[in-house]
Design a protein around this nucleic acid. Structure first.
Length: 547
DNA sequence: TTGCAGTCAATATC
DNA sequence: GATATTGACTGCAA
């Protein structure tokens, strides 16, 4: 009777308790022929002999957990993720986790019931692990990510945003419940999704979760439930804390420093957050214009002049670079989605011969327009303009940049974006995103056309510069969309088995109907160019601009 | 060591 | 109160 019931009405994985999962694991192993004889050891015996005979968990994971639908896929259609070759012992371990592995939310559920209705997620500031998507264990998310076809991250976030706003659901709830991320991260992610091919496996995870969530017909309902429960719990806590008069979060070290006590407790409770003054930011931005990859010496000087910690300056540069980069990703996407316009300027629309020049125009729009030698040098006043002084540290900070001459050894020579003309000075030239260098560029810290006019940040200036220059990421993006499989894991080339999981319309592969041989060829060409550029850049050697 | 990706969490802004 | 911004941190790779 149980079997019949189970076979005809299998519960989704996420709804199953540990015990409830066991039969499915058994079935899966049996289907795989892994459970020929003997009995699957139950909890506490996972290291038993039978488990040791399990040679690969990939299939169980992918088939049994990824989808507990009654349409098991064959091993052939669901080959192991390349990124996670498992040794036998790892398999055992994973199976252990698999068996025990409660859907994260179950873990918090005291009675083994599905979490949603029983436990408000993270009223206590500690984000709970994400809710497993129906039919998928949390463990398998990595597998899913590895197998996932290229997803349209922008489309996904767009839809998620729509659903959330339409249903008045908050980012915090969504993030903590579905993605296992904090509100800030969710906000960031939704506002500035990176293109799929630019994401690491880890970075893809939230998007896969989102996609799966979007595919879940009960997604909104569940979140609503969560919301209700959270509210209830909140009210409850409020009531109890009123009587308790004790806030629920006692200081971890047990000392209350809020009462004007020593501001520097021995345990140093929390570092106060550094907030950079606008002038400091301005100065840093100007410094960035001069040199996106400042040498330690420059950083030192900047720090001194701005009266900041060196680490703050370093962090600022890191953050700024990466954020600007992302800013541009999203803009590229948006630009791309608004009619394939700009096609004439599109690198992929150019011939292979033209490609280098497109590279030359800009290797990466991010800082592309920002490097000292950015194209259209006549456009703005460079340091002078940038330094449109507000006096103070801002101005002072720009100075060291101009003085700086010897690039630090670690600063790799940037591939001359526009032909052999540019190998001259790499001083102040953005590294990752080689700036566009028009014919006019060359001499060191030259007025940066895209240098932000006063108050304009680099991203903005880059935006201005866009249109006359395409970015490397953009190129890559295009290349990638034209070549769905270049950056996607091998599994992406066989998305069919995952189509139902990811709702294929969402997948870039499906989306890209322009995927034709010619495009592929162009994209491949660009790909190779970029590859060479990167290689050359890292070798600090001159490049031959023949593609 | 350096740079990056991803994230947190404090703070600002809406 | 929700969302956006951003300085800092961790882990990883080259």
């Amino acid at each position: 009777g149980s079997v019949s019931d189970m076979l005809s009405r299998p519960k989704p994985w996420s709804k199953l308790t540990q015990k409830g999962r066991e039969p499915f694991i058994r079935m899966q192993l049996w289907l795989n022929g892994e459970l020929g004889q003997g009995v699957l050891p139950v909890q506490g015996q996972q290291q038993g002999p039978v488990l040791h005979s399990v040679t690969s968990l990939q299939d169980p994971l992918q088939q049994g957990c990824v989808s507990s639908e009654s349409t098991p896929k064959t091993s052939a259609s669901c080959s192991p993720a390349p990124e996670s070759p498992m040794s036998s012992s790892e398999s055992v371990k994973s199976l252990t986790e698999l068996v025990q592995q409660p859907c994260p939310s179950l873990e918090t559920s005291r009675d083994g019931k599905p979490p949603e209705p029983s436990e408000p997620p993270s009223s206590d500031s500690q984000p709970t692990p994400p809710l497993p998507v129906p039919g998928h264990s949390a463990l398998s998310i990595q597998e899913l990510v590895a197998m996932s076809p290229e997803l349209d991250t922008y489309g996904i976030t767009k839809r998620v945003k729509e659903v959330l706003t339409d249903n008045n659901l908050g980012q915090r709830l969504f993030g903590e419940t579905i993605l296992g991320l904090t509100q800030g991260s969710v906000s960031d992610l939704l506002a500035r999704p990176k293109p799929w091919h630019k994401l690491s496996l880890k970075g893809r995870e939230p998007f896969v979760r989102m996609q799966l969530w979007l595919n879940d017909p009960n997604n909104v309902e569940k979140l609503m439930d969560m919301k209700r429960m959270e509210k209830k719990a909140y009210m409850k806590r409020r009531h109890s804390s009123v009587s308790d008069s004790q806030p629920c979060e006692p200081p971890s070290v047990g000392i209350d420093y809020s009462q004007g006590a020593s501001p520097q407790p021995q345990h140093q409770l929390k570092k106060p957050r550094v907030v950079l003054a606008p002038e400091e930011k301005e100065a840093l931005k100007r410094a960035y214009q001069q040199k996106p990859y400042p040498s330690p010496k420059t950083i030192e000087e900047l720090a001194t002049q701005l009266n900041l910690k060196t680490s703050t300056v370093i962090n600022w540069f890191h953050n700024y670079r990466s954020r600007i980069r992302r800013e541009l990703f999203i803009e590229e996407i948006q630009a791309g989605s608004q009619g394939q316009a700009g096609a004439s300027d599109s690198p992929s629309a150019r011939s292979g011969r033209a490609a280098p020049s497109s590279e030359g125009d800009s290797c990466d729009g991010v800082e592309a327009a920002e490097g000292p030698g950015a194209a259209d040098a006549e456009e703005s006043g460079g340091p002078a303009a940038a330094a449109k002084s507000q006096g103070g540290p801002a101005e002072a900070a720009a100075a060291p940049e101009e003085r700086e001459e010897a690039p630090r050894p670690s600063e790799k020579a940037e591939p001359p974006p526009s032909g052999p003309a540019a190998p001259d000075d790499d001083e102040g030239r953005p590294r990752v995103p080689p700036p566009p260098e028009g014919p006019a560029d060359g001499p060191g810290p030259v007025p940066n056309p895209a240098a932000p006019a006063a108050g304009e940040d680099a991203a903005t200036s880059v935006r201005r510069a866009r249109g006359r220059a395409r970015s490397m990421p953009a190129i890559a993006a295009e290349r990638s969309s034209a070549l769905p499989s270049t950056s996607a894991p091998p599994a992406a080339r066989r998305p069919s088995s995952l189509q139902s999981l990811f709702g294929l319309p969402e997948a870039a592969g499906a989306r890209d109907s322009r995927d034709n041989p010619l495009r592929k060829k162009k994209a491949a060409n660009l790909n190779s160019i970029i590859h060479r550029l990167e290689k050359a850049a890292s070798r600090e050697e001159p490049i031959e601009w023949e593609f």
